[in-house]
């Protein structure tokens, strides 16, 4: 039982990371109906931005985190501007292939520019164990959950309480009508990419902090898993991404703890396949009939 609770805690901290990445997928999908394959790599770039801020400029945790988020936001906007915007009216397959291309480009540029060897991420938060009854919680896990919670609350506030958030929701609902209402759709889309990329970068820094190492291909698997988390929760739904991320994190940690770590990467896809067959609209989603 203690073991189980311990794993739940580990799962929740991993899940918070997935949730942060999943938010970017779900927001972009909600607005553009595009799986932004490059999102996992934006997360990688965010981790490296945090690494340079901490290791080269010797910044502390919060400035490094903010620097990474800002850097990734710029990257996200640039990707949308250069690669996705010209294809706004193209087929979804064409945009999907482009997204895969951008993702590969970032990974391979990462390999050449940043070198493929993993790097040690600086100790921005001193490791300490916190005892809670029979459970041990590492303070980095607390930092992860705390930062993720703050960011998600901030996101909820932006989306539900600000003008730009209202515009985002309008564009997600109906792009053409939103444009007729005088909303600058391009700017809203750029803003969405900035927001999603910043959250992914935060996840990247947190992962660097937690595992202590980063490399240019670190974004592939978490990126795919976070996408699965977004689908699991109901793609296009912000609370769905949060729930999906947490469920995903817990499920993965449980498989590693009670089955075998070699099956780790198959869990996500098994979940995905089951959810798409049983409940394609996701845990929190409602079924939408396709209009012809």
């Amino acid at each position: 039982m203690v073991e189980f609770l311990q794993q739940i805690i580990n799962g929740l901290s991993l899940g918070s990371i997935y949730a942060l990445i999943a938010l970017g997928y779900t927001m972009v999908y909600g607005i553009l109906k595009l799986i932004n394959f490059a999102h996992g790599d934006v997360y990688m770039v965010g981790a490296f931005a945090g690494y340079y801020a901490a290791a080269v400029f010797h910044w502390s945790f919060v400035p490094a985190l903010l620097f990474a988020m800002a850097g990734a936001a710029v990257l996200g906007v640039a990707i949308e501007r250069i690669a996705y915007r010209p294809l706004r009216n193209a087929t979804r397959i064409a945009t999907l292939i482009t997204a895969i291309g951008v993702s590969l480009l970032l990974e391979n540029l990462g390999i050449v520019v940043l070198h493929p060897e993993p790097r040690a991420f600086p100790d921005l938060v001193q490791l300490r164990m916190v005892r809670l009854g029979a459970l041990y919680i590492n303070n980095r896990q607390l930092v992860i959950v705390l930062v993720a919670t703050i960011l998600m609350i901030a996101l909820q506030w932006v989306v539900n309480r600000t003008r730009i958030g209202q515009a985002m929701r309008a564009v997600a609902e109906d792009q053409d009508t939103a444009r007729l209402m005088g909303i600058n759709v391009d700017r809203v889309i750029s803003f969405t990419f900035a927001l999603g990329s910043a959250l992914a970068a935060a996840a990247g820094v947190l992962v660097g902090l937690y595992y202590g190492r980063i490399d240019p291909l670190m974004g592939i698997m978490p990126g795919l898993k976070a996408f699965v988390a977004a689908v699991l929760g109901g793609i296009g739904l912000i609370p769905g991404a949060m729930v999906g991320g947490l469920v995903m994190g817990v499920a993965e940690v449980m498989v590693v703890a009670f089955l075998s770590s070699t099956w780790k990467d198959a869990v996500a896809f098994a979940i995905l396949i089951v959810i798409l067959l049983v409940r394609p609209s996701g845990l929190l989603g409602r079924a939408v009939r396709e209009k012809v």
Binding site: K33, L34, I35, R92, I93, L96, L224, F227, V228, V231, T262, W263, D265, A266, A268, F269, A270, L272, I273, L276, P280
Partner: peptide, 17 residues
């Protein structure tokens, strides 16, 4: 469309695992 893409990707990975 894109759901199929991600599921085929998933199956490919599962086969590998």
């Amino acid at each position: 469309g894109d759901y199929l893409a991600i599921v085929t990707l998933g199956f490919g990975e599962i086969i590998r695992v």
